[in-house]
Design a binder for these strands. Structure first.
Length: 564
DNA sequence: AGATCATGCGCCC
DNA sequence: TGGGCGCCCTGATC
């Protein structure tokens, strides 16, 4: 597997052990504080031998209030653990870990990220559950009613792996969510941290609209109305849930949890998870204090009282209605739990199942066709899979180690199903950790077979050096949409996008700069810019390959895409 | 090129 | 139980 081969790209790093490192870290910190504000005069005095510096630090009686007596160049100090003798950070496109910290990927002790076995081949990260045969009535129901809907032969996966078109700096803040139009194959909706809603016709690359007056902050989730595909519901951190007409941009607030405006951070409530129940014409939204709210879309009025579905005071970040049995609701949140509910009997403590996680859960989804599997993404760097909601739910069927750490500046990662995969085993998820790809530090978007934990494809483009935490697969076409920082990208399978490119005389890349900044292009019409802008700013961590246009996308191997 | 900032969650007292 | 502090691969801007 090429992933394994990739490992050879990592230089062997031998770090000399500093014999003093165990000593008094408190002192060190105090000294450092002083160092930062110290005077310049003595700058030249101190010399660079790390060991010497160390001794100086420990022995110097740094006076608490006044000036420090010594000035030390911080160059030789590890920026992670503040110790000397090694340094963490990028060296070219390769990140060198701080050896004092546990593995950044699997979080287990005994090795650093570079040596982590999960990094080389993802399937090593799979922790299978012991096979439990319960033979209870739910198993029986599953075998009888659901099993036949799950195809036993896995189809070939088609991986959209080449950037077909992109909108750079479309949003003025990072992208938070994406949604494909239910009937128009070329429309992609995107929400951002500022509450703006983007409508992009990626078939005619230049056609794009941004509605900026719907919400005032983070657009956390949106869904199309099943009754009318011109209407979108959106939940926002401004505490409102709205219904918007895409044609006119007219928006109606259906729920406002902060009717009295800002009364301080303790009273402000935000809306996160949201989903719809078409049968009952309900919008379900969950807030930042553990409650679920329901709104009837026929009367546009609240239905019932809010129900506490997660620990009081914690965010409920995700809701999902079971596609096969719409009375089943899945919720997940910051209390480290995923819960399954029957919305006909919604009361606190009445959940059908609680699925415990080690850390905050970013997302939890039923499988898109039969609704019988569950995939969750948690910030403990694990994707968890339950193969059947009718089976034993005590432990997940598999845990897949995957780098999608929490970072306050990134939209939380979510593993998303491929809605077209009849075997319900393909999932996309962005990767946090970077890898050295021909001299570039890139963060790929991973396609994972959750039935085995195998990494099917890692999709990246040398021009996209930012992390892509938001990804969505098209419900009908072989298209992947991804949101990376403020930009949106549409990926198609390589062959196909070549055809499309030949057929069309369209520009693929649009730079949509919301600010009045001239730096991009020459101040002329945005739409006249092209690929140069696409590449421009990038390459911070990139080593060599600057000017050339390398192969766009790599997948582990071509054979992998086929034959299952 | 380097400094600055934005600002969520875990953990510790 | 709650406030305060610290943070490992960010990204944009100046």
């Amino acid at each position: 597997m090429p992933a394994r081969a990739r490992r050879t790209l990592f230089p062997e790093v031998v770090i000399e052990r500093d014999s003093d490192t165990e000593k008094s870290s408190d002192d060190e910190e105090e000294v450092e504080d002083d160092v930062v504000e110290s005077d310049d005069q003595e700058e030249d005095e101190v010399e660079v031998d790390a060991r010497k510096v160390k001794e100086a630090e420990v022995s110097s009686p740094a006076n608490k209030k006044g000036k420090a007596h010594i000035t030390i160049s911080l160059k030789k100090v590890c920026k992670v653990c503040k110790r000397t003798g090694h340094q963490a950070g990028f060296q070219g496109p390769t990140y060198i870990d701080c050896p004092m910290k546990p593995c950044f990927l699997c979080k287990l002790p005994g090795h650093t990220t570079v040596d982590c076995p999960h990094r080389a081949a993802m399937e090593f990260g799979v922790i299978p559950a012991s096979r439990k045969r319960t033979n209870n009535s739910l198993d029986y129901v599953f075998e009888r009613q659901v099993r036949h809907r799950v195809p036993s032969i896995k189809p070939e996966f088609v991986i959209p792996d080449e950037v077909n078109c992109a909108v750079i700096r479309y949003h003025s803040r990072r992208v938070t969510c994406l949604e494909f139009h239910p009937t128009n194959n070329n429309i992609l909706l995107s929400g951002d941290k500022k509450g703006q809603l983007g409508v992009w016709d990626f078939g005619k690359v230049h056609e794009k609209t941004v509605y900026s007056n719907i919400h005032t902050c983070l657009l956390n989730n949106m869904k199309f109305s099943p009754a009318n595909d011109g209407t979108v519901y959106a939940a926002s951190s401004d505490g409102t849930m709205s219904s918007t007409d895409l044609e006119t941009g007219l928006s109606t607030p259906l729920l406002d949890l902060n009717p009295n405006g800002w009364q301080g951070p303790n009273t402000w409530t935000m809306l996160y998870g949201m989903d719809l129940n078409a049968e009952k014409s309900l919008v379900l939204v969950a807030d930042s204090s553990g409650f679920l709210h329901m709104v009837d879309t026929r009367s546009n009025s609240k239905k019932g009282n809010p129900v506490l579905i997660h620990k009081k005071g914690t965010k409920v970040v995700g809701l999902h209605i079971n596609p096969f049995q719409p009375d089943l609701l899945l919720s997940c949140g910051n209390d480290h739990f995923v819960r399954i509910w029957d919305i006909r009997r919604l009361e606190p403590e009445s959940c059908l199942h609680s699925l415990p996680h080690k850390r905050v859960v970013n997302s939890a989804y039923f499988s898109p066709l039969t609704g019988s599997k569950i995939v969750t993404t948690s910030i403990d760097n694990r994707i968890r899979v339950w193969d059947s909601i009718f089976g034993n739910l005590d432990t997940p069927s598999r845990e897949i180690v995957h780098s999608h750490d929490f970072n306050r500046h990134l939209t939380p990662f979510r593993a998303e199903w491929d809605p077209k995969d009849p075997s319900e085993s393909l999932v996309v998820v962005g990767r946090y950790i970077s890898e050295n790809y021909n001299g570039l530090a890139l963060h790929p978007i991973d396609f994972i077979d959750i039935s085995t934990g195998q990494l099917i494809a890692e999709v990246m483009d040398p021009n996209i050096t930012t992390i892509s935490p938001v990804n969505k697969l098209h419900p009908r076409d072989d298209v992947l949409a991804s949101g990376s920082s403020r930009s949106l990208f549409i990926w198609r399978p390589k062959e196909k996008s070549d055809e499309v490119a030949q057929e069309k005389d369209e520009r693929k890349i649009v730079v949509c700069d919301n600010r009045k900044n001239k730096k991009f292009g020459d101040g002329s019409d945005d739409d006249d810019d092209d690929d140069d802008d696409f590449k421009s700013k990038k390459g911070k961590k990139s080593g060599k390959s600057k000017g050339k246009k390398p192969i766009l996308v790599t997948t582990p191997s071509s054979s992998k895409k086929k034959k299952f």
